[in-house]
Nucleic acid binder design. Structure first.
Lengths: 400, 400
DNA sequence: TTGTATGCGTTATCAT
DNA sequence: ATGATAACGCATACAA
């Protein structure tokens, strides 16, 4: 049954279709209920565009292939000004006219051209987000997908869209931002994964591009920021472990270049010092490979920690695996805490105690602040809910 | 130190900033190198727009807050037609003029307005992707983030952007597609997670919206499709287990409404039947909860399977955990295979045997096909590389 | 209340 | 080679 001829094309295999030889025409769109009269003027550059629409009788113009407000105006027997007013729900037209225009617009399946509206209104109804991370590592972190979803909840309420760009380096990210700003591509942007003295934040601030920073106000450079109090969360985690009798705790940290990593670093150092606990800082790049490696090194060294706090959930899972491989009981001999709680944490054995945060709500919050901003609000710092410790099975009394 | 006054605002806490009382003005953009002469005409509705730019001497127009080609034309002492030609590298201007125009454009930091270009060219340089899944489950699946990254690699090469929309239901997804089509919001779309008789595919086909289906040609409704041969992969997995002596295999399947799920279902049923193996189909919704539940039921029932094939990686991890909880050795007593390989599969104990696929490359492939399509290519079906079985530690000789 | 004219920034045509 | 000028589709100030 799988015997059709198959062509190789380098990256893939090509399966010929039934309409193989036919010209590359797509089926004609089910255009608006076409009336009778043909159009008279020879189409000029409209040729390049969509199919010309034989809409109305003596249409002197506006046959671009899509239905426009002049089509509506003609058909409804009013001016385009009246149509625009009626469509946008402004006063200046009689109720009767308005209703007729609305009906005709509906009949014709009219919708405003994004480009034309954007040009006239000098806004795009679009927010941008540029992501600079290695795609292969990006995939395993649940944060972004949930964050996107949260953004979208708020955006869709107002008919806004999200423009996403995934780039390879921070420089590329900045370039994208510059391009967006100069081409008026978006109304505002969301900035994530900031570093100290972040160039993107600096650019947004100086260029006037509305931007909300996802992260601590201290690194937002005066921009609006929405942040989570990671320092408090970290202290809670440390105190929890201290209360269980742990005296040697390791922190498996993410990229040191990221600002929020350092904030967690500091809180970890301060709280362990305050409690007289031996602390150890293990630097990683968020990948499970790194999480596994540093965990193995720490656990097999002399004076191994009895508890580890990981900067994300995937590394925590990797760490748990290492402990098991080494024959160490969790939590009887080693306790584990994950940051960025996800469903993953609930499906390991034991389940992972984690610092949990509603990322979807967080995303919605960020979107609301960006709307405030483009509507003229002054930059402020907004504290989102603090990630709280959810106790599960991976933390317990220290063995010694 | 953390003693600033804090306001509660319902969803969050508000931290007052230093510039609390000041009006909501943003720092003036570092506009183009401003010359001397002030502008004369009183700004009309430009007020609403960006800052008015005191660009040129006796500029009779074009002070919209951003630099436009008429600014360039004026400053370079040529017409805007010449500027456009020079900028777009077409012949019709002398080399000398071209160079001067380019230099001025660069000085002024000019970039074309997305909206204006889009309106004039009747294209948006944007592809759209609408996602209809529960965000909380979406997060843990690495597929989409990698897929996005793959798309972007190809898009960025050509200056295209990705418009992303996350919605709650298939109906909303269709509505978004309709809106995009009618408002000319995108040049094309990528369709994922198709179901039998998919409305989105039908809409794209009938409306002429260029679309590439991510999935089997059989459900693409004549649209261009890029697919992976899941049936072959499934058969390979079954044969691998059969070769290890397994006689009872369960398939932990994803949503039955999705077309590719059924393709895997069928291949699983056919291959097990052909090999005379007892098979069992367990339906889930991709969540680890469901994966855990059905695994537990299967493993604790009478005549439990000795091997399970999961439809994603997260459920496989959950299944592994269940086996451990039940005291079943993996792979000594139960073998496990995951679909959608991810880094996660390499950091469990044992590591998971998985059907692996380069999703980033897959995304790039899809993007290339969409470009072909908008450039006039005829719809075809393209077979991407077939997910191949990567043997790790979770599959072994059957215990019975 | 309704129609007219113009701006928005770019591309493309058609005259010089 | 160059310079006006007309689309593109929508919004809106202003005149009727």
């Amino acid at each position: 049954m799988r015997s059709r001829r198959v062509y190789s094309c380098g990256c893939c295999t090509r399966i010929p279709r039934r309409n193989e030889g036919k010209p590359a025409i797509r089926p004609p769109s089910p255009r608006v209920p076409s009336l009778s009269t043909p159009l008279e003027a020879p189409p000029s550059r409209r040729e390049r565009r969509g199919l010309s629409c034989s809409l109305v009788g003596t249409s002197r113009r506006s046959t671009t292939g899509r239905v426009t407000i002049s089509d509506i105006a003609e058909r409804a027997g009013v001016s385009i000004g009246a149509v625009s007013f009626a469509l946008n729900g402004r006063k200046g037209v009689s109720d009767e006219t308005r209703e007729r225009v609305l009906r005709v617009a509906d009949e014709l399946g009219w919708a405003p051209s994004t480009a034309a509206r954007s040009l006239a209104e000098a806004k795009t109804d679009t927010f941008g987000l540029v992501l600079a991370r290695d795609p292969h590592n990006l995939g395993v972190e649940s944060f972004y997908m949930e964050f996107f979803a949260g953004l979208e909840i708020e955006l869709s309420k107002r008919g806004y869209s999200l423009l996403l760009q995934v780039v390879g380096s921070p420089d590329d990210a900045l370039a994208t931002l510059r391009k967006w700003q100069r081409t008026r591509r978006v109304d505002g942007v969301v900035l994530t994964d900031l570093v100290d003295g972040d160039q993107r934040a600096a650019f947004a601030a100086s260029s006037g591009l509305p931007a909300v920073v996802v992260g601590d106000p201290s690194i937002a450079g005066g921009l609006t920021s929405v942040w989570t109090d990671d320092a408090t969360s970290m202290r809670e985690a440390v105190r929890h472990l201290a209360g269980l009798g742990h005296r040697r705790i390791a922190r498996v940290a993410g990229l040191g270049s990221l600002a929020h990593t350092r904030i967690r670093d500091d809180a970890f150092a301060e709280e362990t010092a305050a409690l007289g606990i031996a602390s150890e800082l293990l630097r990683t790049d968020y990948t499970p490979e790194a999480g596994e490696r540093v965990t193995r090194e720490a656990l097999t060294g002399e004076q191994p920690p009895t508890a580890l706090i990981y900067d994300n959930d995937v590394m925590a899972v990797a760490g748990l695996t290492v402990a098991m491989e080494l024959g160490l009981g969790v939590p009887s001999e080693v306790s584990i805490i994950a940051w960025d709680d996800s469903v993953l944490c609930e499906h390991t054995l034991p389940k992972l105690t984690a610092l949990s945060h509603d990322v979807v709500a967080f995303g919605s919050h960020v979107a609301r602040r960006l709307f405030d901003l483009v509507e003229g609000a002054a930059p402020e710092a907004f504290l989102d809910s603090t990630p709280r410790l959810v106790l599960r099975g991976s933390t317990g009394t220290a063995s010694i």
